[in-house]
Computed example of a mutant assay.
Amino acid sequence: MGATLTFRSPVGRPLTIAIGGAGVLLVGYAAVVDGPVALWQAGPTAALVLALVWALFWAPQVQVADGGITVVNILRTAHVPWPEFTEAETRWSLQIKAADLAVTAWAVPASSGTGTRLTARRRRAAEEPLVAGRGATGPTGHGAEAAALAIADRHRALTEAGHLAGARRGVLPATIRWNHPQVVLLPATAALALASWLT
């Protein structure tokens, strides 16, 4: 039916790159000034900070695809197939509801009132309607409202095409799984940083 649309924080990836670059520069400078021992003193802490920023701002996202909605949060990922989907809410952030599950997307907060008004003014000035899912790249496409519109559009398109006709709930239930890279990386870098602080 359509391409997979990805929604994430517009500042998450630039922020992660900036902090990663700053960490490398600081650790490199410390190593030049204080010698190799500085790598052990500063390196694990820099790695922990980068791991936290990556888990909080780089990895989280929402994907809207023909197979359903996938919400990647900090530690867990939820997948809601279309037959299980019931509603998308945008009060504080994007919340996806299924028959037996409600999951809030960390990466897709609702726009502020000011941001919503400014976006509406820009659209009126350009006489251009908001296109759901313009999404992943457009200036109006990062918030919960844009993601919810994309979800509604995809659900409607799949329904009108007959792909959801006769689909029964419970056959493909919504699932939640742990994000193994984050679950391993965060405690490991925290333990390494603690060890460097204690020695």
Score class of each variant (00 low, 15 high):
Arg76Val: 14
Arg76Asn: 13
Thr77Cys: 09
Ala78Phe: 12
Ala78Glu: 13
His79Asp: 09
His79Leu: 08
Val80Lys: 07
Val80Asp: 00
Pro81Arg: 08
Trp82Arg: 02
Glu84Ser: 04
Phe85Tyr: 10
Thr86Tyr: 00
Thr86Gly: 00
Ala88Asn: 03
Ala88Gln: 00
Glu89Arg: 10
Thr90Pro: 02
Arg91Glu: 04
Arg91Pro: 06
Ser93Val: 04
Ser93Ile: 00
Gln95Leu: 04
Gln95Asp: 05
Ile96Tyr: 05
Ile96Gln: 04
Ile96Leu: 11
Ile96Met: 03
Lys97Thr: 09
Lys97Val: 04
Ala98Cys: 02
Ala98Pro: 01
Ala99Cys: 00
Ala99Glu: 02
Asp100Trp: 04
Leu101Phe: 07
Ala102His: 05
Val103Leu: 02
Thr104Leu: 05
Thr104Cys: 03
Thr104Asn: 00
Thr104Ser: 07
Ala105Val: 05
Ala105His: 09
Ala105Gly: 02
Ala105Thr: 01
Ala105Ile: 02
Trp106Asn: 01
Trp106Arg: 10
Trp106Cys: 02
Trp106Phe: 07
Ala107Ile: 05
Ala107Lys: 07
Val108Asn: 09
Ser111Lys: 12
Ser111Ile: 09
Ser111Glu: 13
Gly113Cys: 00
Thr114Asp: 08
Gly115Ser: 10
Gly115Met: 00
Arg117Thr: 14
Arg117Phe: 15
Arg117Asn: 11
Thr119Asn: 11
Thr119Ala: 14
Arg121Gly: 08
Arg121Leu: 13
Arg121His: 10
Arg121Gln: 09
Arg121Ala: 12
Arg122Cys: 10
Arg123Leu: 15
Arg124Leu: 12
Arg124Gly: 10
Ala125Glu: 15
Ala125Arg: 15
Ala126Glu: 15
Ala126Thr: 11
Ala126Asn: 15
Ala126Asp: 14
Glu127Ala: 13
Glu128Pro: 01
Pro129Gln: 10
Leu130Asn: 14
Val131Asp: 12
Ala132Phe: 12
Ala132Thr: 12
Gly133Lys: 12
Gly133Leu: 13
